[in-house]
Design a protein around this nucleic acid. Structure first.
Lengths: 128, 128
DNA sequence: GTTGACCTTCCCCTTTGGGGAGGGTTTATG
DNA sequence: CATAAACCCTCCCCAAAGGGGAAGGTCAAC
């Protein structure tokens, strides 16, 4: 398979497939006589894995480890779980951070008239 | 005031003060004879404004508009409120996205033994 | 035998910070 | 007065995860 077909069926763009290769996330693809990258079904499977992991917010660094564990049939599931749990903690921190912002922002906008007068508690709060 | 003092009392690093100037977020600072940037109390106020707005997650593009509205005594508060509301919507989208990830991740990790055996529903799910 | 759809590499851009080099200035201390 | 520390300057590089697009080679279909 050429890169375009892999992109289509894996959902990972050709651009990113090349980047993942450059960054060492996936091994270098074989090339055909004219220099085109050539892929197997297995490669497609890997790109789907990456795609799904990205959709769960895992970083490429995490995904590199996850791919390696996935391919290692002697892995310990504890290693996978650890990565996931750390990721969960990070996401929870981020959610809390955003919710704190939202609480403040909602409070401020509620008190802003939002008309053509200049008085504005939002700006007041920012300039305090 | 030199940039270092402004950085200390505004909480914005000297590095970022220069970048904000480069990017046009704040006007170019005056220079003294030796080329050092020279600031007033008013400038400090602006950097505090920026710092607070950043802590609420506003982008620099938004902050540029907010600064301009802040300095315009004939502004309409509706323009400020609009920026805040759009920002709130974006943050809510992000929170929802992260919560979706968290739901999936928590479900998967709950079902992962996390011991030295290789079976792992997390990897199973990623490779589906 | 040409055109269009592929593929290649290479470089640039986004966003919001930070690190550090290389070199000039100011201030404090001996 | 000299020197060292603490500033300041500009310029370039880095992160993360994508995307855009140029310039040029290849393949397939008509």
């Amino acid at each position: 398979m050429n890169i375009g077909e892999v992109a289509k069926i894996s959902g990972v763009s050709a651009k990113m497939i090349r980047k993942y290769e450059d960054s060492g996330l996936v091994p270098k693809a074989k090339r055909n006589v004219s220099g085109y990258r050539s892929y197997s079904e297995n490669d497609v499977h890997s790109f789907r894995f990456i795609k799904t992991a990205r959709s769960l917010g895992f970083s490429l660094k995490d995904i590199k480890e996850l791919l390696s564990l996935w391919k290692n049939k002697k892995r310990a599931s504890s290693n996978v779980k650890k990565i996931a749990q750390i990721h969960i903690e990070q996401l929870e921190l981020k959610v809390n951070e955003i919710n704190t912002m939202l609480n403040t922002l909602k409070h401020l906008t509620k008190n802003c008239h939002g008309d053509d007068r200049p008085e504005c508690p939002i700006l007041d709060s920012l300039s305090e």
